[in-house]
Simulated assay, not measured.
Amino acid sequence: MSSAPSPALPDERLAAGAARLATRHTGRFAAETVQGLLADSYLRLAATARVSTHLVVLAERFAAERLDALAHVEGTPGVGLPRVLFVCSHNAGRSQLAAALLEHRATGRVTVSSAGTHPAAEVEPHIAQALTEVGADLAGAFPKPLTDEVVRAADIVITMGCGDACPVVPGRRYLDWPVADPDGAALGVVRRIRDDIDTRVADLLASLPGA
Rank of each mutant, 00 (worst) to 15 (best):
P170L: 06
A128Y: 03
P143N: 09
D137W: 00
D181Q: 02
G135Q: 08
R172S: 13
S113M: 04
G161C: 00
A136E: 11
P178R: 01
N91I: 05
A92V: 02
L187K: 09
E103Y: 00
G93S: 08
Q96H: 10
T159A: 02
G116A: 03
Q129A: 15
P143T: 08
A121S: 12
V123A: 14
P145Y: 09
R94D: 07
A154D: 06
C162P: 06
A106F: 01
M160S: 10
D137G: 14
F86M: 11
A153Q: 00
A98S: 06
A139V: 03
P125R: 03
G171A: 02
V169F: 15
Y174L: 10
G188M: 11
H104G: 10
E103V: 09
P182T: 04
H118A: 15
G135K: 05
G188T: 14
Q129L: 12
C88T: 09
G93Y: 14
G116C: 03
V168E: 14
P178S: 06
R152S: 14
S113T: 05
S95W: 03
E133K: 04
S114Y: 13
K144D: 09
G93E: 09
P145W: 08
I127N: 00
R109G: 12
L85G: 11
L131Q: 00
T159Q: 00
F142W: 12
S114P: 11
A154P: 05
E124M: 13
Q96S: 08
A99L: 01
L97E: 05
S89A: 15
D155L: 08
